[in-house]
Design a protein around this nucleic acid. Structure first.
Lengths: 143, 143
DNA sequence: ATTACTGCAAACCCTTTGCACGGTT
DNA sequence: AACCGTGCAAAGGGTTTGCAGTAAT
C-alpha cells in the first residue's frame, strides 16, 4: 500500500529514498500517532544511531509538504506528527496530568466550524482545535 | 470601572501597583486585542523606555493568573494576550496573508465541543481553537 | 558524475529564570 | 525597614539553517 508508494512518491518528485526517510515513515505508521519530533528521533536512533534531530525535522517537514504526514500544533510550542490521518476532523484532547493526547471530533463539529467561518467570509485552510484538561483515567484516579 | 479596579485588585492580593503594570493594562485595554508579548513590549517602550521584555512576560503572566487577561496560543509558538474577553467563546481566525487575527465562535460551538468532551469523559479546562486561512479582505484582494 | 541529503554545529525565536538593585508599601 | 518588582544577562526548549562531506541517482 503506502509502504510501496513512498519510494515512487519520493523519486517521482525528484527526492531520494534514504534510510532515514524510510525509518521515519515506518515509525510514524506503526505508532498510534501523536509523536513529537523528539519522539521520532528517539525511535529512529534506536535503530539507526547517529541520526540527527535536525534530520528528523527536515524529513518531517518534507513529508508534511508531500501530504504524507499531518502536523498538529498542541500549543506551548509542542507539535506532533501523525501518518496520514484519514479522518477529516482529528482534534486533540490533551491531559494536563498524564500528558496523554487523544483524538476527538465529529462531522458536526467540523461542519459547524466551517459554517461559522463562512458566515464571516473567512476561508479556512487549517483548523487546529486543542482542548487541555483532564482525561477520564486521571479524573477517576485523582478525584 | 476596571481602570479603577486594578489597583484594588493588585493591592488586595498583596501585589504592588507599578508604572509597568499600569501601562500594560492601559495598552491591552486600548488595543483591539490580540497583542503578542513583543507587541506589548514595543508599545510600553514607546512611553516608558528601558522596560525589559522579561518584565512584560512577568506582568502578563500575573494578569493571566488574576483573571484580568486571556492568553491564547495561536500555534507556531505565537501567543497573544487580550484584556478580559467577556464573550465566553473567543476563538481565532488567523489570516495567513495579512497576519490579521479576528474572533469567532458561538454558544453552539462551545456547547458542541463541551458535549463531545463529555462524551469521552474528558474534563475540559481550556479550549483553544485557531483556524488559519484567508480573511475576507485578502480573498477579494487576491482573487 | 551529478546533486540531493545528512551530520555537525551554530543560530534562531519565544519564553523563563537567577540575581542584586531600586521602588512600593 | 521590609520585601516585592524590575533590569540585566544568561539559559532554556523547540526549531531552523549554513556548510562541507556523503550517499543516492
Amino acid at each position: 500500500m503506502i509502504d510501496r508508494a513512498l519510494p515512487e512518491v519520493l523519486r517521482g518528485r525528484g527526492y531520494r529514498v534514504t534510510p532515514q526517510r524510510v525509518l521515519v515513515r515506518e515509525i510514524l505508521q506503526r505508532s498510534a500517532g501523536h509523536l513529537s519530533a523528539q519522539d521520532v528521533h528517539a525511535a529512529v536512533q534506536a535503530r539507526l544511531p547517529g541520526v540527527e534531530l535536525s534530520t528528523i525535522y527536515r524529513v518531517l517537514e518534507l513529508f508534511v509538504r508531500l501530504g504524507l504526514v499531518a502536523k498538529s500544533d498542541l500549543g506551548e510550542g509542542r507539535a506532533v506528527y501523525e501518518w496520514c490521518p484519514e479522518h477529516a476532523a482529528h482534534h486533540h484532547l490533551i491531559c494536563e496530568h498524564c500528558g496523554g493526547v487523544t483524538h476527538f471530533g465529529s462531522p458536526r463539529l467540523g461542519a459547524l466550524i466551517a459554517a461559522e467561518c463562512a458566515a464571516v467570509h473567512f476561508e479556512p485552510r487549517d483548523v487546529d482545535l486543542a482542548v487541555a484538561g483532564t482525561c477520564r483515567q486521571c479524573r477517576s484516579a485523582s478525584g
